[in-house]
Every structure is written in structure tokens, then in C-alpha cells.
Write a protein that binds this DNA or RNA. Structure first.
Lengths: 144, 144
DNA sequence: TTATCTGCAAAGCCTTTGCACTTAG
DNA sequence: CTAAGTGCAAAGGCTTTGCAGATAA
């Protein structure tokens, strides 16, 4: 049993699919979990490289895909264009407040909005699978 | 004075910037306005080509950028990955309901949700610039 | 042992850019 | 006339893929 539940989840996912628990995959997961920032593959690559010099960017891309498949990470397509990844394990559905100055991303949730979104979909006879909402603006620190 | 207000808007925008009213720019605008679909640059290129065989994809990209700058088009970054463009002139802010089966995109608006979004931002001391909301699901026709 | 994984470099998308020729003003 | 635009092809980002050597099971 690992210290982190996320490591168990990845391990079990890999085993169940007949995939291997490689050192690199664990390294990537650990570094990914160390920061709450919403990283790009390139940023994550730079961080992993600090500790494991030889890691290749292809392994980062491949591992991020695995992490998404087993529910540990989630892809985030923000308007800045770059694809970013956030932690998914233990994080319920949430929306994002994004500072257009410093790039900070806040995770927020409003049950009332969620309810209205569902009603809106129903009104148009859409069977909701998922939704996303992002508010872009300037945070308090940057406004000063 | 042109038949379409959009043509006037483009013309005036170009003149004001010292840019030229080329035939191609008008061609692209006209074909863009002919369909309510949310097109990718490649799809628009194919449509324009039907009428103006020699148009190049670079001109499509360049013209779409101009149309965005003068408020006639708006870039749409949906989860499918492809960048799409929608009409912007005469269309107020709205959100999107997207069918994950047939790709249909409905433009919707809910004033109550808009209000709550603004409150949510204020609660976190964010000064809202804009926001986006997309609901992905299955439309009535596809559900049948 | 052997199927999978890794790092590398090459290849693939989509989008932008440089260039020589063309055109609007 | 000449600054700006066009189509083409080449170049740029980001992401994926093919491959030969490495490794988990």
C-alpha cells in the first residue's frame, strides 16, 4: 500500500489494463501531485526533469493521457490556447475563475448555477453529459 | 451602401485602418454569412472555394482574424479541439448547448445564470471581463 | 522471456509567415 | 505609383508516432 491513494489508483489501473508500473509513470504522477497549479505538458516536463533528468516529453504526454483515463487528471482547455491539466482525484466538479493578468485559476462552485444549467438544458431537450463554465477577469491582487 | 450591414461594417473597418477592400475579403465574408453553422477555417475554405476556386487557406485565416477584430465573427474553442467561428454581428452574448453525437450547436441565454455568475465572481473579488459556458449533451433527435 | 515502455527524432496537425506577383486606392 | 493583399510553399508550435534499446512482470 502506497502512502498516496493516487499512487494506488494508478497502479491498479495499469495492472487491470495489462500495462506496466514503470518508474517514469510514478515520477510523473508524483511531480504532478506536488503542485496545485494547472500545468501545461511542457511545464510539467520541466518540473519532472529537475528530479529525473532523462525524462522525455513524449512520456509526459503519454502519462498525462493515462492519468486522465484513470481519473487522476483532467484536461483543461482555456482560452489562452495552451492545454493544461488539473488534479481530478478528490476534486468534485467545479468551474473556473481565471485572472487574465496573472493567469491564476480559482476553482469555484455554485449549486444554484448548476441547477439552472440543468434546467436550461432540459428546456431545450438536451440530455446533459457535462458542462463547463469559465469566468475571465482580473483578480483582486492584479486590480490594485 | 451595401445590401448587408455586415459588408458596410467590414468596409468601414478596413478603410479606417488603411487596409484594402479586396474582392477576396468580401467573398469570404459573404460565404461566412450564408451559413448559420459554426465553421472551422478549413470548412469555410471549402465553401468559399466552390464559388471562388483560387482562394487560399491563408486568406481565410487572415480574413477570419479581421472579421473578429471588427466584431463580425467570434472564435469558439469547443472541446472537440477544432477552432470554430460564429457570427457575431447582431448576436448578443450567449452560451452554447452542444450535441456530442451530431455536433449541433444551440445558442442559448439565461439571464438568471448570468446574474449568478456575476455574483459568484464578485464574491471572489474578481472583476469580470467575460465568461463562457457550454453544456455538452445529447439533443432530442439523437436521443431517439 | 517477451510484451510493454522509454527517449529520441521524425512525422502530423493546424496556423502563421516570407516572398514574388497582383491589386486597390 | 505604391502600400497592402494574395496564393503558395515553407516554417512554426504543439502533439503523436515509429523505432531500437531497455525494463517490468
Amino acid at each position: 500500500m502506497n502512502f498516496k491513494p493516487e499512487e494506488d489508483i494508478l497502479e491498479k489501473y495499469l495492472s487491470s489494463k495489462g500495462l506496466k508500473n514503470s518508474q517514469q509513470r510514478l515520477d510523473v504522477l508524483r511531480v504532478f501531485l506536488e503542485t496545485e497549479a494547472h500545468l501545461t505538458p511542457e511545464e510539467l516536463h520541466a518540473l519532472v526533469k529537475k528530479k529525473f533528468k532523462t525524462i522525455g516529453i513524449a512520456t509526459i504526454y503519454r502519462t498525462l493521457k493515462l492519468l486522465c483515463n484513470c481519473g487522476l487528471a483532467k484536461e483543461l482547455l482555456l482560452e489562452s490556447g495552451a492545454t493544461r491539466y488539473e488534479h481530478s482525484y478528490g476534486h468534485n466538479h467545479h468551474d473556473h475563475l481565471i485572472c487574465t493578468q496573472c493567469g491564476k485559476v480559482l476553482e469555484v462552485i455554485d449549486p444554484e448555477i448548476e441547477k439552472l444549467q440543468e434546467q436550461l438544458a432540459r428546456k431545450h431537450q438536451f440530455y446533459t453529459e457535462r458542462h463547463r463554465m469559465e469566468i475571465y477577469g482580473v483578480c483582486r491582487q492584479c486590480k490594485k
